[in-house]
Design a protein around this nucleic acid. Sequence first.
DNA 1: CTTTTGATTGCATAGCTATGCAATCCAGTC
DNA 2: GACTGGATTGCATAGCTATGCAATCAAAAG
Lengths: 337, 337
Amino acid sequence: MGAQDGRRVTSVDVAKRAGVSQSAVSRAFSRTASIAPATREKILRAAAELDYRPNRIPAIMLSGRSGMVGVVVGGLSNPFYASALEHLVCSLRDQGLQVLLVHVDDALTLDSALEQLLGYRIDAVVTALAIGSEVVAQALGTLRIPVICFNSRLTGPWISTVSSNNRAAGVTAAHLLRERGVACPAWLAGPLRNAASVARGEGFREGLGALAAGLVSLQGDDTYESGYEAVSTMLARGVRPDGMFCSNDMMACGAIDALRDRAGLCCPRDVVLLGYDNIPQGAWRAYDLTTFDQGVERLVGAACALLAEALADGAEPVSQSLVIGAELLERGSTGPV
Amino acid sequence: MGAQDGRRVTSVDVAKRAGVSQSAVSRAFSRTASIAPATREKILRAAAELDYRPNRIPAIMLSGRSGMVGVVVGGLSNPFYASALEHLVCSLRDQGLQVLLVHVDDALTLDSALEQLLGYRIDAVVTALAIGSEVVAQALGTLRIPVICFNSRLTGPWISTVSSNNRAAGVTAAHLLRERGVACPAWLAGPLRNAASVARGEGFREGLGALAAGLVSLQGDDTYESGYEAVSTMLARGVRPDGMFCSNDMMACGAIDALRDRAGLCCPRDVVLLGYDNIPQGAWRAYDLTTFDQGVERLVGAACALLAEALADGAEPVSQSLVIGAELLERGSTGPV
DNA sequence: CTTTTGATTGCATAGCTATGCAATCCAGTC
DNA sequence: GACTGGATTGCATAGCTATGCAATCAAAAG
């Protein structure tokens, strides 16, 4: 076995043992290089005996490419983001890219975290942050590497975005409520800095048409608790909507629970309610939540395609925006299908 | 600004502009090195003008340490793991360690994924996999780097584990049910390969004492659906327990929904029920689930402490096992406190 | 047998920073 | 003014692999 002394096993060690040059070892582990099958086998055998593993670090120095992508997440407590991350990690691995993960609470953390990551010469950044300040855009722009954002309205020469068709979904939600005969609609918004939420609200208002005049607007922050709170407060003030669109599923679940707990209201009997994201919990029997499925696979697939394009040799700074249609997924909370 | 031609800005470029040597630039960015304040400032200014960022890659080659930790996850759809990951990423960053994330479906993926990661010279591996085969242990053992496992019974010269006090919690759960006067207890187990689940079951059985004779044993796979299914099947067979311990919260939620849907049974009125993990959804009003809080912060903190120790200079291969006590968190599903 | 061709292999080098060591410089001391 | 000591700086090098180029070799063609 290798590591007789403390030193790591290098390609030179393998070369010695196999009786070839160091370059031959390198070629034995390369898919493209030209090498005789017999030689390769001999080398691989020697490598196995020494427990040698090719070291990618020098290759990074030479090529300037690390094969690593910085992935910036916040709020993994939302199962939608957790799922998106899971898919993303798998897709990137299939492209031969590794994920350098960063968790971010605020813009400050982001700055220092990116600074750190850049030291590792990451090839790109993918972010699912629901953050969209100019400051962030600027920070991301100066990296001079491709940046892919989910559901963001950031723009810049290196920044591409993949978004759900938030506005159209909002319209669809409104139409569904009108079909169900809703007279007094409500809208439970996410935080203002969340561009996706804003777009959903705009679409919803637009789709409501005349009904928009009496729209009840509630403010949440994308968490279950905020949905529960907002609806509780509303009910306490005596407001009783009969239809409700929630900017995400977490808040929708909170809303359903508040409606039941605080006023004995049921979905869909008393309130026709729907959310957004299609988190697993929405399908749980206690909620049976109608929602919009963003199609995580398509979303992530699109992001990876953009990434591959942006990382192609000799590519210019790319800036694209893809919109992926979200699909209405009708369940019990909006009534029998 | 930098990057006049395609080349990246290097410390040599900064040195030229600041009129110093390359080593001075290196020292300006080092916390420990000796350098005159005026010189450092001059260099930092030049660096800022050129948009220079220190490159960690050569340092990795020299030191053999990358400052990256491979984190292996599976099943991020369980919010408990998502939360653990979030905490872990933050704690590691506070230690100056980066996270190279891998998602694993099966043992096969694990092997190839680890092979990949090793090329990046990761300093250690942290895994929250509920996988514990000998094969995996062997694979992890040959890496010759510290490995930290959560809730696993893997052992080996390089492997340390941090576990929740699963067995004791099982006993506590049993005692709680007996206090509540449960006559016919049930146990909803996770997959057999999940060592934590097995330990919880053993403790539960032990704590039940005489009651263990009539124990109803159900088999799930840690998902909501499996909990729902298992309980539905049980009810269909006419079995009606009045107390239930579920190996995790996801299954517990499924069990609660099945009890209500399929037999109109409520917790705690008809069934005294508790889970494990303290996922956010357990606190949702629809479930109000009594559970064991593993203390993610403490768990992750302990793991990071072990890691720091294992990565200390000149450390021998460490193999420790820490057990963190889980705390019973009583909510409505086991009756009024 | 000679020449040509293609395949395989080895040599030498680039890539960028951290650090030991030696050189230099400055201030303080006698 | 000479000397000591400490602080600062520069020089030179190690660290490991991928790859262009030249050399070599074997086989096929003439």
